[in-house]
């Protein structure tokens, strides 16, 4: 026990030193352990007037996308995105309940935001250059990666050689859709209406593989012995909170809150609360942390990045 404590302290010091060395200029006076020294709540800019006057947030989340936004059988909103929204409510109004959720779908979420039905959307929103022309993104709060779900007896190997001639399913309008069209001309791509429909397609041999976000597929593969994930990992693109254009107050607040959560490693706490323990290790790199800041691939669009 004692050894463990010592080990933890030493490790903590090493990490702290590394962080201080890397981000020295940003956090000059943070001493040995930045996390421990941080106050529980960061200093946040003023809330946008409309939100403040209302006394609660209106936030768009998914209701059909476990483990990020879903409704449990009692009708309660749950998931990673939902917890992030609750943290915003806590810091804005002192209570995690000061938020009303609006259920959005992949197709409806940006319209729900731009039409003013909600303040912001926290809804598994992958960064893309096209979307950024229409809405603003906060600093990233999650890092998703693409994986392939295949039947247990399938050996994939290198994507560039395996993909041609195969039939791949994914949801419509996803980044995978565009990536396959850009990079795998001889692969047939089929849109499915929902993630669960994609899983069925693979199970029933209607497709060779489903290409989708790791978080969803990991759970599926772990629970179905006839399916597995190939070892390929691709299209690592972070997610951000969606904010309407020309709302600098909102962007400033949300960015500060996301940074505050990252610096306190709250995203990792949330992830641990929302997914079963056996998946923690797999997902650790997906949550931003003081030592692991995420960045949008603004300089090179990921969907044009073809594997060799």
């Amino acid at each position: 026990m004692k050894r463990l404590v010592v080990l933890t302290i030493v490790l903590g010091l090493v990490v702290a030193a590394a962080v201080a060395a890397t981000f020295g200029s940003a956090a000059p006076a943070r001493g040995v352990s930045p996390q421990a020294k941080l106050p529980p709540k960061p200093k946040l800019p003023a809330l946008p007037a409309a939100v403040k006057a209302r006394g609660k947030w209106l936030i768009g989340v998914k209701c059909d996308t476990p483990p990020f936004g879903w409704q449990d059988t009692s009708g309660k909103n749950r998931g990673y995105d939902v917890e992030v929204a609750r943290q915003f409510a806590k810091w804005a109004f002192g209570s995690t309940s000061k938020v009303d959720f609006t259920c959005v779908t992949t197709a409806s979420r940006i319209g729900t935001l731009t039409s003013g039905r909600v303040d912001i959307i926290i809804s598994t929103l992958t960064w893309t250059a096209d979307r950024e022309k229409v809405i603003d993104y906060s600093v990233p709060y999650y890092n998703a990666a693409g994986r392939l779900l295949v039947k247990n007896n399938v050996a994939v190997g290198k994507l560039a050689t395996w993909m041609p001639g195969k039939k791949i399913v994914s949801t419509s309008g996803s980044i995978y859709d565009r990536w396959i069209k850009n990079c795998f001309k001889n692969t047939s791509f089929q849109v499915v209406s929902s993630p669960a429909a994609g899983v069925l397609a693979v199970k029933n041999d209607q497709a060779n593989a489903m290409m989708y976000d790791d978080a969803f597929l990991v759970g599926v593969a772990a629970n179905d012995s006839s399916l597995k994930l190939s070892s390929n990992i691709f299209l690592k693109v972070p997610w951000g909170v969606g904010i309407r254009k020309n709302e600098p107050d909102m962007k400033r607040w949300v960015d500060a809150a996301v940074r505050g959560m990252r610096n306190r490693d709250l995203f990792w706490s949330i992830l641990k609360r929302t997914i079963p323990r056996r998946f923690w290790k797999t997902f650790r790199p997906n949550a931003p942390s003081p030592a692991h800041k995420l960045q949008y691939p603004r300089s090179s669009p990921p969907e044009n990045n073809c594997p060799s």
């Binding site: 849109v191 429909a197 069925l200 209607q206």
Partner: peptide, 13 residues
């Protein structure tokens, strides 16, 4: 769309 595959009937869209 969802139910027939369960019965082993695989149809395209």
């Amino acid at each position: 769309y969802y139910g027939l595959p369960v019965l082993g009937i695989h149809l395209d869209v």
